[in-house]
Design a protein around this nucleic acid. Structure first.
Length: 265
DNA sequence: ATGGCAGGTTATACCTGA
């Protein structure tokens, strides 16, 4: 069977209702993972997703900030979601599909402006979150469960993941302590970067462009902050991994664009 | 080098994003 999984930092699920319908039509996901839903669970538009065919869901949101959700056409065998850094801030949710893989959807803290944990508590939170993801990846590595990790990881690890490696080395999302940290998570879990598995390491690929950047298409000052990783047992099944760059030109866009993979199981 | 926008809120200024 073929399973298509899309991840998108939607930047308000309620404001983006029409764009979500457009996304379903365009990317044809079976499983849709969202970040920054910015809504409490009681106000989440579950009916709108059911009308699009996504009758299964697991959601974890709060008012105004953060929030993650997994919407699915395929039934779940089990759902979950962990607390990270001791905070109930809705940054992780998971669902194991009856069809097999376990899907983990993350929203890693952005980390503020100053890349120094002494001066900026948010940056410390981000580094602590990455450290917990490393330990978690290591613990889960040998459990034999095929896994897909998706989400807005808020780090662009490779030189080709940013518009200018040199100019972003001191900018939060591309500092060495972050990129090395994310590489540590990948190594701990034997994770395979699905996008780079398909596209190679050198192609410039971005999934986020600032709202403040005028003429984002011509300037193209983007970063690849949104990721899909799979455990090695699933990498032979990867038949597609694509970034829907066009979505940044949609009416009332998110500043992130969706990333989709297809697994031929 | 700088500044630029968008979303949400017991809003009408301020926090967050990255």
């Amino acid at each position: 069977m073929k399973i298509r999984i899309t991840t998108w930092n939607v930047n308000s699920v309620r404001l983006r209702a029409d764009r979500l319908a457009q996304l379903v039509e365009t990317a044809r996901p079976d499983v849709l993972c969202l970040q920054e839903t910015k809504v409490t669970d009681d106000l989440f538009p579950v009916d709108a997703f059911a009308e699009l065919g996504f009758t299964h869901h697991v959601i974890r949101g709060q008012k105004s900030y953060n929030g993650v959700a997994i919407l699915s056409r395929l039934p779940f065998a089990e759902t979950g979601g962990d607390i990270w850094c001791g905070r109930e801030d809705c940054r992780h949710i998971s669902a194991r599909l009856e069809a097999g893989p376990e899907i983990h959807n993350f929203y890693v803290p952005a980390g503020g402006d100053i890349p120094d944990r002494e001066q900026n508590e948010k940056f410390g939170h981000k580094l602590d979150f990455i450290a917990e993801m490393t330990a978690w990846s290591d613990r889960r590595k040998t459990d034999g469960v095929p896994k897909v990790l998706v989400g807005d990881l808020n780090i662009a690890p490779l030189e080709a993941d940013v518009w200018s490696h040199k100019q972003l080395l001191k900018i939060v999302s591309h500092t060495p302590v972050e990129t090395e940290g994310l590489n540590g998570v990948m190594a701990a879990g034997d994770w395979v970067d699905a996008i780079r598995h398909i596209h190679g390491p050198d192609e410039k690929l971005f999934s986020w462009w600032s709202y403040r950047s005028p003429n984002w298409q011509t300037n193209d000052r983007g970063r690849r902050l949104d990721h899909v990783w799979v455990t090695p047992d699933l990498s032979p099944a990867l038949s597609e991994a694509s970034i829907l760059r066009d979505a940044r030109s949609w009416e009332k866009p998110s500043d992130h664009v969706p990333v989709t993979v297809q697994l031929d199981l």
